[in-house]
Design a protein around this nucleic acid. Structure first.
Length: 392
DNA sequence: AAGAATGATTCCTC
DNA sequence: GAGGAATCATTCTT
């Protein structure tokens, strides 16, 4: 009876195996799995920890353009540490799954072999069962790979997106930048050299200096009222430093700077209606340390070739800010007739000579000494002003 | 927590 | 390539 029953079961089994065989083929590994594998390989997660930094260090390095120079290595080591953590978790989980898969496969195989004594179990069926188990564990592994990829992406975006690690500049850096800005309000476009110097003084990068000036110019122009107080603070500060000579920007060539604000030359409302503020110091002898300014007047350039000078200041000594931000002693023309706006340097004055005296927007109005009283040609903007002291 | 301030980025023009 | 304008994302202030 037993052999007969066994043969019947074998017959039924044969049919079942055939039907199973039909659905066995599930095709090649999915494209998604390949993508995940590629990404994990590219990120250096798939491979076990290596001695060197390999690709991931390179990835970290290339992804911080012009960022904070001071903590780059710190950020990168932190990034590497976190990535290493992810890698460890990934490999440990993967190992667990593989071990579980092996154990389960062995268990099921043994079970089937044991059952083969009681019922017909072909090697094909065992093979199929093993394959099913592997498929199930592959699905779990794919989930692991997916979540690992997500973790890596999150890590990357957190560490390598420069905007996320923005830090406010130090007080020192902000002061250095603001001093330059407000002392060069007529032309707040520092040269490459000036940028490098500002960067050095502020402990920031040149590109950060450029960013700062870009933001500052825009924001100052948009809301001058808001910056009035700040402007006063810095101009006062610099007026106090009047006697200081040498060095960069405000300290070097701007011993006394007029109050900027709405009447400053930088926030031009329209071409041909430029404003330049001069500090009239007619009653003062060589600039006192306190820079006790008697009065301030605005010279309004009505057009490219005319500068309206109030009668009250005609012929007076003044300080004029020139294109690049340098401040010079000069005497306003005695007449308001054209060529208005030209400035005359006091003949008995000491100090550097030969500076561009008055520069409005993109137009050079007068130059000392050749330009003495004449109206110069239009210059392309911005006007790079490099003091070139000349002896008279 | 909300709003302001601020450094960085992107896109566009010149 | 530099600068203006808009925007984003974070940090600071209230």
């Amino acid at each position: 009876m037993k052999p007969a029953l066994f043969s019947v079961l074998c017959e039924i089994k044969e049919k079942t195996v055939l039907s199973i065989h039909g659905i066995q083929e599930e095709g090649p590994p999915s494209a998604q799995l390949m993508r995940l594998d590629n990404m994990l390989l590219a990120e250096g997660v798939s491979r076990p920890e290596r001695r060197g930094r390999g690709g991931l260090a390179a990835a970290a390095n290339t992804a911080t353009p012009g960022g904070c120079p001071n903590d780059n290595s710190l950020e990168h080591s932190d990034y590497r540490a976190k990535l290493s953590q992810i890698r460890q978790i990934y490999h440990s989980e993967l190992e667990k799954y593989e071990q579980a898969c092996r154990e389960f496969t062995t268990h099921v195989t043994n079970l089937l072999r044991e059952q083969s004594r009681m019922r017909p179990v072909s090697p094909k069926e065992i093979e199929h069962m093993v394959s099913v188990i592997h498929d199930k564990f592959s699905a779990i592994q794919m989930q692991l790979k997916q979540s690992t990829c997500e973790a890596v992406m999150t890590l990357r975006s957190r560490f390598l997106d420069a905007r996320r690690k923005r830090r406010n500049f130090s007080k020192q850096a902000t002061e250095v930048l603001n001093e330059y800005f407000y002392s060069h309000l007529s032309n707040p476009y520092p040269s490459e050299e000036a940028k490098e110097e500002l960067a050095r003084k502020g402990g920031i990068t040149v590109s950060q200096v450029s960013n700062w000036f870009g933001n500052k110019r825009i924001r100052y122009k948009k809301n001058m009222g808001k910056f009035q107080e700040e402007a006063t603070i810095y101009t006062t500060k610099m007026a106090v430093d009047t006697t200081k000579v040498g060095g960069l920007g405000s300290q070097a060539s701007c011993p006394s700077t007029p109050s900027p604000g709405p009447s400053g030359p930088f926030p031009l409302t329209s071409a041909g209606d430029a404003l330049i503020t001069l500090q009239t110091l007619a009653s003062l002898r060589p600039a006192p340390a306190g820079g006790s300014l008697r009065s301030q007047v605005s010279l309004r350039a009505q057009s490219k070739d005319a500068l309206e000078v109030p009668d009250s200041v005609l012929g007076q000594r003044c300080r004029a800010q020139v294109g690049g931000g340098s401040w010079e002693w000069a005497i306003l023309p005695a007449t308001s007739q054209p060529p208005q706006g030209s400035l005359r340097r006091p003949s008995n004055e000491e100090g550097p000579t030969g500076y561009l005296v008055c520069c409005l927007d993109d137009y050079r109005l007068a130059e000392w000494p050749q330009g003495h009283g004449s109206v110069g040609p239009a210059l392309p903007r911005p006007v790079p002003f490099t003091p070139s002291p000349r002896t008279q």
